[in-house]
């Protein structure tokens, strides 16, 4: 009985050893299979082209439309186009059409879109910036130009009750030529809508865009 028991143990040992060999074979066959599978799948992948990515939050077109209160004066339109997003190159343009008239009051309306896919233009100003007014703030800049700017009563209110600068009124002063800039600041830590004669200032955060229009004229 005892011998049988020992024999049994030996059998088990042998069985395990054989099983072990089987394990090796299994591993080898698994490896071969996997190699085949991967090779096979990669072959079939070739017909499967990845879809293009059309970025959803590129500021490609920024337009400032200054409408005069007296419709006999010309509307001034400033437009900056960066088809691949800010700094992305491509056929960029930066234009100012029309001239301001001294003493006239203009109401500024903004447009900021992502037109990187011409068939699907995103209105970033109304879809992203205004709903997230707490995180956005427009800072304007003037160099050499005489303007008196105010943020309208109906302007959007953002961080710490500051008006973010979507609806603004511009009174053209003495005749002058210079530059006008518009900067959209994202996630600033502090903003001040009355700084720099209401042009505004922001600290912290980063600039979504910072666009300057040169050769702006007040006649």
């Amino acid at each position: 009985m005892n011998t049988n028991n020992q024999n049994f143990k030996l059998m088990i040992t042998n069985f395990l050893n054989f099983n072990f060999m089987k394990t090796t074979k299994f591993l080898l066959s698994a490896i071969v299979c996997l190699t085949l599978v991967t090779t096979f799948t990669s072959c079939s992948d070739d017909d499967d082209n990845p879809p293009p990515v059309n970025p959803t939050e590129l500021f490609t077109n920024v337009t400032l439309t200054f409408t005069p209160s007296n419709s006999t004066n010309a509307t001034v339109v400033m437009e900056d186009i960066q088809p691949n997003g800010q700094g992305g190159g491509g056929a960029t343009s930066n234009t100012v059409s029309g001239a301001f008239v001294s003493g006239e009051t203009y109401s500024l309306s903004l447009a900021a879109t992502d037109a990187s896919d011409p068939n699907d233009v995103d209105d970033l100003l109304n879809d992203d910036v205004i709903p997230e007014a707490d995180e956005h703030f427009f800072v304007y800049g003037l160099n050499g130009l005489n303007f008196t700017m105010t943020r309208d009563a109906n302007d959007i209110v953002g961080l710490d009750n500051n008006k973010i600068g979507v609806n603004t009124t511009w009174v053209a002063g003495a005749a002058s030529t210079g530059n006008l800039s518009i900067t959209l600041v994202h996630e600033a830590t502090a903003v001040d809508d009355s700084a720099n004669n209401n042009l505004g200032s922001a600290t912290g955060g980063e600039e979504d865009f910072n666009i300057t229009f040169t050769g702006v004229t007040i006649n």
Partner: peptide
């Protein structure tokens, strides 16, 4: 022998940094 597959998810809405 080695086979490697890199997949860059297009749902990021940002152009792929590596293809």
């Amino acid at each position: 022998a080695r086979y490697q597959d890199n997949f860059a998810d297009p749902d990021t809405g940002v152009r792929r940094i590596v293809p």
